[in-house]
Each structure stands twice: as C-alpha cells, then as structure tokens.
Design a protein around this nucleic acid. Structure first.
Length: 440
RNA sequence: GGCUCUAUCGUCUAACGGUUAGGACAUCAGGUUUUCAUCCUGGAAAUCGGAGUUCGAUUCUCCGUAGAGUCACCA
C-alpha cells in the first residue's frame, strides 16, 4: 500500500465539538496505525462564517487531547490560485462551463458538465454504494471563476495533498459521488472513502453545533480527562472485539481497524463517559489528582487545601475520590456542604441526632460512653482501624446504629457522611472530643 | 417527496449459518458489623415484522415498517 495520508478538515466557525473530534480521532488512529501522515486543513471557503480567530480553538483542542498532525495547518482560502487553475483546466477541456444564472449577481457561476452515469464506490465501512449521478444535474462548482465552492476546493486540495483515505461523517455520504465525478474529470486517483456513523443526541438526530453538541473545551472544563474522552469517543461506533474497553491513545493506534467500525448511529451516553472518566481519575497518581482537583476548587477551599496539605490529602483519598466522576463535581460537593465539617465545627443538629426512636437523653448517654472510649485511645494509636476496634466493644450492647449514627451527626452535622471511623481519624482526637463535648 | 444509508437489552456493543445471544454503562436486589459513595455478588433486560434460501438463521436474499442523512452559489 502507498503511504497512508488522511486529513483533518475542520471549518473554523467556532469551537471544535465532540463530533468533529471523533472524526479527527479516527483519521488519526487510522493514519498512525499504518505509520501514515495527517494533513490539517482549515476549510474556510465560506467567508461569511469562517474566522481566523477560531483557528486557535481548534489547534488547542487537538493539542489538549493529544492528536498530532504532520502537514499544515493549511487554509483552503489561501489556495485559490491552484483552485482557479484547475477550474480553468476543466473549462478548457469542456468538462465545466460558465453559466449566466448567478443568484447573487456576482458574475457567472461555473457548472460541472455531468456525465450522467452510475457511480459505484467501495465504502470502507459500508461496502459498495452506488448512485445515479444524473440527480445532481450540472451542479455548481464555483460561485465565479475566482471563488470555488467547497466540493471543488476539497477535491482539488485532497488531490494535491496526496490524501489516500477520506474518513468523515455519514452526512458526507451523498456528496461523495459528486466529488468522485470531479476527481475523475481532473484525472486524479480516487481516494478510498470511509463514512463513519453519526453521533446522535437523545432524539436520534445528528449532533451538531446548533443541536446539542458540546465543545471539547466544555468537556475539559468540566474536568473530564482527555484520555477518558479519547477512549470513550474511540468506542463510539467502533470496538476492537474483545471485552476490554480501557485503552490509551497509543494502544488504540495499535489495534485500530477501519473494518470494525459500525454502521449504525451512536447515541452519546454521559453515564458511560462518566464511568470511563472515573476509571481514569482514580488511576491518577495522588499528586496528579490533587493538582487537577485544586483547579476546580473555589477560593476558600483552595486556601484551606493549601494550608492543610496533609489533612486535605486524606480528605481527597478517603472522601472525595470515590464520590466524584469528573472534577467539576467537587463544586457540587462544596456547595452542598459535604466538605465543610472537616474544616469547621458543624452546627449542632439535635433534630436528626437520635437513632430511630431513641430519646435525646438516651442518645446523649451513648455519646458520653462513646466519648469515654475514644478518649482512652492514645494519640499515637489514632487510626481508622484502631478506632473501629475500640468502638467495637460498644456495639454488642447498644447496637451498631445507636452508636454510630449519633457519632456521625455530632462530628459532621449530617445524616450522610463517610463512616465515623474515617471521620474521627480525619478530624483528629482533639477535635473529635471537642465536637462530642459540644453536643453532650 | 426523490436519492442514500441503517435496524441485537433503556444506551454503547459482541457473536464474520449451529452460543443457555456475551460484555460494559444505566437500573434493581443482597453483601461489605449504621448512612451516602466506593467495592463485591447476583437479578431483570434485546435479535423490528413477514416471506424465502438452508438440516439450521441475529447472521444470506427479498418485501414491508421504522429511523436517520442528504437534496445550497454552507462546509
């Protein structure tokens, strides 16, 4: 096989969204798998919507998720000379002609002389597909001689850049025969096409910028890890066949195979993404996790975490890690007061302190017993296991809930919290006794 | 509407003519000496319908049905 060359052809009309990213990812995986090369080309022939300012968004997005390219970035708009040359060539050969019916009045449009034949191409994911080209009639390929439309510009650029594989979304399927016709007229080698299944929303409609598509930067700012995003996106419409589903970008490159791309549209599933993201998060090193988490804390908690490094690391390990699926979830934990009680004494909450039907009096009594047991534990033995072990002796007589429920409420002010052993350990002996005394 | 594509649990998917139709997410139940979360175990859950080909169809063919994409001087 010739050297594989694929392409990223985003139009710079805004942020790069999840559908674009998936297409680029597949182009990347395919090219890299065969040690091929990737061309990045901004498709900006629509002068109304394309803006140079959007280019960095796209470049940054690619960089953030680790997708590299080898050639470019090119701008379609800066390749006008070559487009015009090819346009004139077709006109000269009688394969295209200028016509008078410009609706915008900006000169003569250029139409392609349609040979009206059946086009058959072997789609790399869908198999043979055939179209009767006469339905397109003599379609327009340029607004005027200096101003080609997309279909013409892509075809010329792909040809000139030696693109061997065009991997794109299914929405381009019906424009493929037109492009093949142009390629044939230009005497170019027709690349192989692969049309990827669409990513759809809950309504089964194509995800697009104006329809539910979220930008890649949006996901990243929610605290989804790039690795997780890549991993999830790779599995939308493709899978390697086994039961494993966690793969790094490098591993995906190794095993990627276009023939295993599915044909049916894939619904974007946040639950699944969250799960994969959670998996990547808990496998982060402690330092890495902390560093990333800190970026999502508000001012108050950033300060608290930085002033209490050891304590906050314990809180991350024992409390936060199993409770958030993406880093931005920490904001919810904070706003719901799930972290408050580690740093300041809770409001006394006698309403909920009683276990089941126990009276307040009885509850205070058990808290006193609990306090006495805890007080006897030496500072240097203050560990989760040792606290548990000591409290154990109270359970048989009083019942587990009767001891632990009031203890939890006294320490946290909440009905739901991490287990009281962990809580006690995190707070430290002195603080625990103070909180118990305040309640009793 | 024309053209094109698609059709397995709620979701993503596996099974390239023979399986008790598998896995993951979600969901439900139980367990981890109280709760939330995590973790473990288990359960429920699918081949769109109809013909054909075949000893045998999720798998091949055809017809329906349903959904989607596309029909720009947008990309």
């Amino acid at each position: 096989m010739d050297k594989v060359i694929t392409r990223f052809p985003p139009s710079p009309t805004g942020e790069i969204h999840i559908g674009n990213m998936r297409t680029m990812l597949f182009n990347y995986l395919f090219a890299r798998h065969f040690n091929g090369e990737i061309v990045l080309r901004f498709e900006d022939t629509d002068k109304e919507r394309s803006k140079k300012e959007f280019e960095p968004f796209i470049l940054d997005g690619l960089k953030a998720v680790g997708l590299s390219f080898d050639h470019g970035p090119f701008r379609q708009s800066e390749r006008n000379d070559i487009h015009k040359e090819k346009l004139l060539e077709l006109i000269k050969k009688g394969l295209a002609y200028e016509a008078e019916d410009s609706s915008t009045g900006s000169g003569k449009v250029v139409r392609f002389r349609n040979p009206n034949k059946t086009i058959i191409f072997d789609d790399q994911v869908r198999g043979p597909i055939s179209f009767d080209s006469s339905i397109f009639e003599d379609f327009i390929i340029a607004r005027n001689i200096d101003n080609p439309i997309y279909h013409f510009a892509v075809v010329v650029d792909d040809m000139e850049m030696g693109v061997t594989h065009v991997i794109r979304g299914e929405e381009h399927l019906t424009s493929t025969p037109r492009q093949i016709l142009l390629l044939e007229a230009l005497g170019a080698k027709v690349p192989l096409y692969a049309h990827l299944p669409l990513i759809v929303g809950d309504d089964k409609k194509k995800l697009s910028k104006r329809h539910g598509a979220t930008s890649v930067s949006g996901f990243l700012s929610q605290g989804y890890l790039p690795e997780a995003l890549v991993n999830y996106l790779a599995f939308l419409g493709w899978n390697p066949g086994g039961e494993r589903e966690i793969y790094s970008l490098e591993e995906l490159v190794d095993i990627f195979d276009l023939s295993r791309v599915g044909k049916n549209p894939a619904k974007f599933d946040y639950n699944k993404l969250n799960d994969i993201n959670y998996h990547y998060m808990i496998n982060l090193s402690d330092e890495d996790y902390r560093e990333k988490l800190l970026k999502f804390l508000n001012e108050e908690y950033t300060k608290l975490f930085e002033e209490n490094v050891e304590a906050s690391n314990l809180i991350i390990k024992e409390v936060i890690k199993t409770r958030i699926k993406k880093f931005a979830d920490i904001k919810t934990m904070i706003s719901e007061g799930e972290l408050d009680y580690f740093f300041k004494k809770p409001d006394m909450n006698l309403e909920i302190i009683c276990f089941k039907d126990n009276s307040l009096e009885k509850t205070k009594e058990t808290l006193k017993i609990t306090r006495d047991v805890l007080e006897k534990i030496p500072e240097d033995k203050w560990s989760i296991d040792f606290i548990k072990e000591n409290l154990n002796t109270l359970f048989a007589e009083n019942g587990v809930g009767a001891i632990l429920h009031p203890l939890r409420v006294a320490l946290s002010g909440k009905k739901q919290s991490p287990d009281p052993f962990t809580l006690s350990y995190l707070l430290g002996k002195k603080e625990v006794l103070e909180r118990l005394d305040a309640t009793i």
